[in-house]
Write a protein that binds this DNA or RNA. Structure first.
Lengths: 335, 335
DNA sequence: CAATATTCCGGAAACGATTCCAGACTGGCC
DNA sequence: GGCCAGTCTGGAATCGTTTCCGGAATATTG
């Protein structure tokens, strides 16, 4: 006769213990440290657990061990194709280490970040902050509170994973210089974005090195609409080529340029940043600085696991290479 | 004199109670049901909690209340731009109800879904399964175990949110018919995808209604590469127009068509499905059946919250409208 | 066979929060 | 002043799991 059991009933370690005829402690040991129990009891516990469909309640475990098995990922905008790629890599890497992922989208609202992180702190073992928009001071307040790895930004007490924007800009500028361009416009991203400042820094030194003019077209939202919005400013400027903070902005430029009949790359060359999927699919293809998004995600998880395992005194800084991908949107200067 | 407190130390309800000079119970009440305590004690507790930076440990709470405040989202591939849009909507809607989101990407591996769901069950109050690839029977086994809402699929015991693919296909086919097309190819998505079967069903009845030929070009991965891979089959067929399971496949077709010099829409018209961001940015613009992705996400959360609140006997089925967006990739038949 | 070392197991405490229950106040009313 | 109702509060139990500790059973050695 088989025991009927309400499916909705949640099965606890106690049920397994009863069925296996052992104590809770033994069940716990049998499942967590199998070599601490006799093979026979282990078998009994395992079959009992399987029959009942037992899965430990990690919430209860976390109270004792202080380890939740979760990591929190905070990012400004999942609609920006850059982030899903990173998150996907984070996901798979985290799963490998038996971690689950909490996802929080702040919708580019800096004020949302800190409360979100606070609310999650007790539920996760550590945080991956992707391109955080909060101020340095706000974030520094979390130092020592929870293991944090920052992506696409550097803040002193935390380990970080960034792309080598400076080198990417160097490649981009060298490419444009070789094509004959001498006046480059830059369409900046969010003012609060560290990447934006980093890229601008790299761009400035690269243009200076080639003795080129840099026209800064002002900040805009890192979206297609943001690019569309500033396109006319770029056209009105003396620039013959434009580098955008990211691919979305670059595509927004494309849009408006096309609408106004401004030929790319004949009248103006365009370079983006990130190499999102779209970049290769538009016409002309978007020349862009590729960032190893999967590597960033993977490296971030690795760093986080390390910094959770042992308190490093010197926070690790991983800088990943960038690579200029030349497509149709850049061409020789016509005059 | 201010009390120095190790920042790394996690602050519990006990600490707040001590500082406020009340019992744990009162702290709990003051924070959870403020009207059950005297205003004065409430104030004392609140300031103590603020000073200490106390945030309740939801894991501990969940043991008592049986409510984790988390929902689990499982999806096949975050790299497919359709899903981030949905997840973003889920996110914001969930946050409104004070829920956090667990994200799991199965990488299109049906075998990963069930274990993933199992592992998360104790940690979430309910699941949002986006386009699950597991078999009906596997998923049905979860009936009664955990509240589940299924997106882009219908499985009998669960509430579901789907798009009205049949109507979308009707619009697409009517559009093509009006343009003079009589032979349409369909590039199918994953065999395990319910949406794919649903769309195919809708397409069949729509073409039948217009007495048009339907050429089924076989299944392929729902990615750009998948589309590229079958593009030549489509060209070799007598079809003058092609409808793809989704936009990514359609863009893959674009790619290969462009490479072979096959003009869109002059030689062949192309229609996609989903209306991802890319669709409006490629050239020519991709005519596609738009799905209200944000609405899907929002509705799914609503349904989940409802089904967590009270056991519905009849699972709700929300079917959201679709809308054909006509862009440059479809045109009149040339012969 | 006795003494010791080793392995294995059960009982109980602990984690941090919530909730029930009963007792201590307060105020109002006769 | 005494009694009752009502409001607040603290103590204790509880959730499901892990871990410490001591005891029982087994194996090892002289």
């Amino acid at each position: 006769m088989c025991v009927e059991r309400s499916v909705a009933m949640t099965v606890t370690i106690k049920d397994v213990a009863r069925l296996a005829g052992v104590s809770q402690s033994s069940v716990c040991r049998a499942l967590a440290n199998p070599d601490q129990v006799r093979p026979e009891t282990r078998e009994r516990v395992e079959t009992a657990a399987r029959d009942l469909g037992y899965y430990p309640n990690r919430a209860a475990r976390s109270l004792i061990t202080g380890r939740t098995g979760n990591i929190g990922v905070v990012l400004p905008d999942l609609a920006n194709p850059f982030f899903p790629s990173v998150v996907k890599a984070i996901q798979t890497q985290a799963r490998r280490a038996d971690y689950a992922v909490f996802l929080s989208d702040t919708d580019e609202d800096p004020a949302l970040e800190v409360p979100l992180i606070r609310a999650l702190t007790k539920q996760v073992d550590g945080f991956l902050l992707c391109s955080p928009r909060a101020s340095d001071d706000e974030l520094k307040a979390f130092a020592g509170q929870a293991p944090i790895v920052v992506l696409n930004r550097r803040i002193t007490p935390f380990p970080s994973v960034t792309a080598d924007s400076a080198d990417g800009m160097r490649q981009a500028v060298a490419h444009l210089h070789a094509l004959g361009h001498r006046r480059i416009a830059y369409v900046a991203g969010p003012r609060t974005s560290w990447s934006n400042r980093d890229r601008l820094r790299g761009l400035r030194s690269a243009t200076a090195a080639h003795d080129m003019d840099l026209i800064e077209a002002g900040n805009t939202a890192p979206t297609v609409e943001g690019g569309t919005a500033v396109a006319d400013l770029v056209v009105a400027s003396p620039a013959t080529a434009v580098i955008a903070y990211n691919d979305l902005i670059a595509l927004g430029l494309f849009n408006r340029f096309a609408a106004r009949g401004i030929a790319v790359p004949e009248r103006i060359s365009v370079i983006g940043f990130d190499d999102i999927l779209l970049a290769g699919l538009v016409h002309p293809g978007l020349t862009t600085v590729a960032i190893a998004k999967e590597q960033i995600g993977r490296a971030a998880v690795e760093l986080l696991l390390e910094s959770m395992a042992a308190e490093q005194e010197r926070p690790a800084r991983r800088v990943l290479p960038t690579q200029l991908i030349v497509r149709g949107s850049t061409g020789p200067l016509h005059d």
